[in-house]
Write a protein that binds this DNA or RNA. Structure first.
Lengths: 242, 242
DNA sequence: AAGTGGTCTAGACCACGTC
DNA sequence: ACGTGGTCTAGACCACTTT
């Protein structure tokens, strides 16, 4: 039998798309509550159960956060719980202190082969490169080199980075309205080169984790490419396999 | 106000526990279909929707697999799609060939400090240690050293490992009725020692990924502890952050 | 045609947080 | 007391697979 509707999409997915579009358009800001399920059901002329299923999926994707008795909220990187969603590094001695981000450098350049491919932008398009150090309990543990599309981050400067107390993604969200949704990391083992060994205060040649990350915002659009070098003398990368 | 029921558990979670127990007791084997939602609803005297919600959660946890029109099936490591659920290593050139497992050694020992802590067994309890090589397209990429509680794997031998064509977890499931449910990996960067460098055919001192994994079966019981050394010259560890 | 999981609805009631 | 999300039910209908 021929399929009647090869592009069949259940109602709750269509509702999900509509909510997603409202989210993307900035109708509700990160951290704020979205309308109640009843209100959304009325707005879209469907039952509450259908709205519920749409929100369920979005909550599972960390786009929304449900709080019984209070409402449903737009997920935000300002929420401290969101920090370790993307940073999987854990101290071996179980110390739970928050890491400190120290900007080292920030300059503008043109996208080369690799950056243009990873960020999905044209060769030679303006980009911003940030180097920064991550410290746990004052000890340097990670050196990051971060590549950003220039047109998405207008006015990003070294001073702006220094002035910000919080995570980078928190800054991106607050200053540029850009929400990081998901990321993909490619991990390899490499030997520390000269400049890295100095920054991390380890001997040259020390094995380090090389963590390359591409981060996506709404619509699976890549907006960050970074390479981090992790010292694993006193920390490890923790991954849960389900 | 004092909470009326501090141990409140919704009905669908109780149903989930009952299905879990049936699964654990081996009432339905891996790969087989479980009863239909209607049958389970009748068996537990609840509505189909409640059973559905219980199964939904278990499907999200990769314990069950739903197939529209056919039924709901017990997840199995014999399913080839399950292989890369725990093995996150990907060739850099996108070659999708399946890895080949080559057993190197298998012997019995008594649990030391670390093994007893990781496996949750007594110091000196019998364990089995397996060393094996993983090859992608004939090239050696991973050396694993695997620690197993002896009483859970009676009769496991080097010959049994050699005779098996398939993944280790597939063997464990088929031969010992042990289903691996979830795992936790701790990743660090280390330098290749003498014996590892020979097995992986890389120079001594080459940076390698050290991947320590604890694997759990039903009831969060640890039943495997392994340490893998990954050569990342032509492969990388891929991790999706959602 | 029959059986399975998947969707959608409408209504009742519960648990939680706030006023 | 009220509004929110969370649970549970019962029934109708849809999509997919097999007989």
């Amino acid at each position: 039998m021929a399929q009647e509707s090869p592009t069949f999409s259940p109602l709750y997915r269509q509702i999900k798309t509509l909510i997603l579009q409202a989210l993307e358009a900035g109708e509700w800001r990160p951290g704020q509550a979205i309308p109640s399920e009843q209100e959304l059901a009325a707005r879209f002329s469907v039952s509450q159960g259908t709205v519920r299923k749409a929100i369920d999926e979005m909550a599972a994707e960390n786009l929304l956060i449900r709080k019984q008795g209070k409402g449903t909220f737009v997920a935000s990187h300002n929420d401290p719980r969101a920090l370790f969603r993307f940073l999987r590094l854990v101290p071996m001695d179980g110390d739970l202190s928050h890491p400190q981000s120290v900007p080292l450098d920030c300059w503008r350049a043109k996208a080369g082969q690799e950056a243009s491919r990873m960020l999905g932008i044209e060769l030679g398009a303006p980009i911003i490169i940030v180097r920064r150090l991550l410290r746990f309990a004052q000890k340097p543990v990670v050196v990051d080199e971060i590549y950003l599309p220039g047109d998405v981050f207008p006015g990003l400067s070294f001073e702006a980075l220094q002035d910000w107390n919080g995570s980078l993604y928190s800054l991106f969200e607050t200053r540029f309205g850009l929400r990081m949704i998901r990321a993909q990391e490619r991990i390899r083992a490499v030997a520390a080169d000269r400049s890295t060994s100095e920054a991390l205060k380890v001997p040259e040649g020390t094995p380090l984790l090389s963590v390359e990350r591409v981060t996506y915002t709404y619509g699976d659009k890549p907006v960050e490419w970074r390479r981090g070098l992790y010292s694993t003398a006193e920390h490890f990368y923790l991954n849960e396999l389900n």
